[in-house]
């Protein structure tokens, strides 16, 4: 009797602290984003006077209307959508092909190629900035969205490949063998049978690469100089560097930059855990 009473107190104590710690993590994760949102809807005149209030006494959408109608941000936004979207699509196609080959074929040189791709995950990408600039400049690919897409695709292919491979590994070989006996070539079987079954993996890869390309800053800064080819990160950063910083407008732009990435993430995070179980290499 006393024993059960003892354990139930312990249990309550355990779950109490469990929920408390979870709550701390949730607050730590969300508070900065909440603050971003809060400042973005605070009218300019009370921004400083109500600097530390949890919620402003008045709210406004002015910052958003300004950013959307009177700044370059819609243009940066479109550039980022084009770059991140194309990169995600192209990378996923290439990674699906390569991941499939890693999962299904034994071929000469496979170990070397896998090792090569693993190593690319370890070396500092900053050291590629100068040479890539030198290679792309004569090709007319600096200051162009195409150049960014090529570079981002190459950077993301290795991880995307390992992610796709872990999903292909989860699909029995029998299925494409059955399809090949039914009348498909191997490639047709891959396209018609295996790929539809890997849709969660494709979604996870698309989302992962999209987020990565959406966030990339250093190469975008280096390779792009004109306003017309600027992506969102570059635009926002140059906005910050200018005088007379308008915090409300910047944070409104920040919230807008957050939306696509977070939408993608919420859709795919379930599959990411699943995919990483097999092939965790790099975030």
């Amino acid at each position: 009797m006393t024993l059960t009473g003892h354990t139930s107190t312990r249990k309550m104590l355990y779950w109490g602290s469990h929920y408390l710690m979870i709550a701390a993590f949730v607050i730590f994760a969300l508070f900065p984003l909440y603050w971003l949102l809060k400042v973005s809807v605070t009218p300019n005149d009370i921004l400083y006077t109500e600097g530390v209030r949890m919620w402003p006494s008045r709210t406004t959408w002015d910052n958003y209307t300004f950013v959307l109608t009177q700044s370059n941000f819609p243009h940066y936004f479109m550039n980022s959508v084009i770059v991140a979207g194309t990169t995600a699509a192209v990378t996923t196609v290439i990674a699906a092909l390569t991941g499939y080959a890693f999962s299904r074929f034994a071929f000469r040189g496979k170990v070397i190629i896998v090792a090569l791709m693993l190593i690319t995950q370890m070396f500092p990408l900053v050291m590629l900035i100068a040479p890539i600039f030198k290679i792309l400049a004569p090709l007319g690919l600096t200051d162009s969205l195409t150049g960014l897409i090529i570079v981002y695709t190459a950077f993301n292919v290795p991880f995307a490949t390992f992610l796709m491979q872990s999903f292909f590994d989860g699909i029995p070989k029998d299925l494409e063998e059955a399809a090949m006996i039914d009348g498909n070539t191997r490639f047709e079987a891959f396209r018609a049978i295996i790929l539809p079954l890997t849709l969660p993996g494709v979604a996870a890869t698309l989302g992962f690469v999209f987020t990565a390309a959406w966030s990339e800053l250093l190469f975008a800064l280096m390779l792009v100089s004109s306003e017309s080819a600027s992506t969102f990160p570059v635009g926002l950063l140059s906005f910050v560097s200018k005088f007379s910083v308008d915090f409300g407008q910047m944070m409104a732009a920040g919230v807008l930059a957050l939306i696509p990435a977070c939408l993608f993430f919420l859709l795919i995070q379930r599959y990411l855990v699943q995919g990483l179980t097999a092939g965790a290499v790099k975030g």
Partner: peptide, 13 residues
Amino acid sequence: IAMVFQSYALYPH
């Protein structure tokens, strides 16, 4: 030729 697999290998979709 036609083949019946141990796992049946039916197309799930």
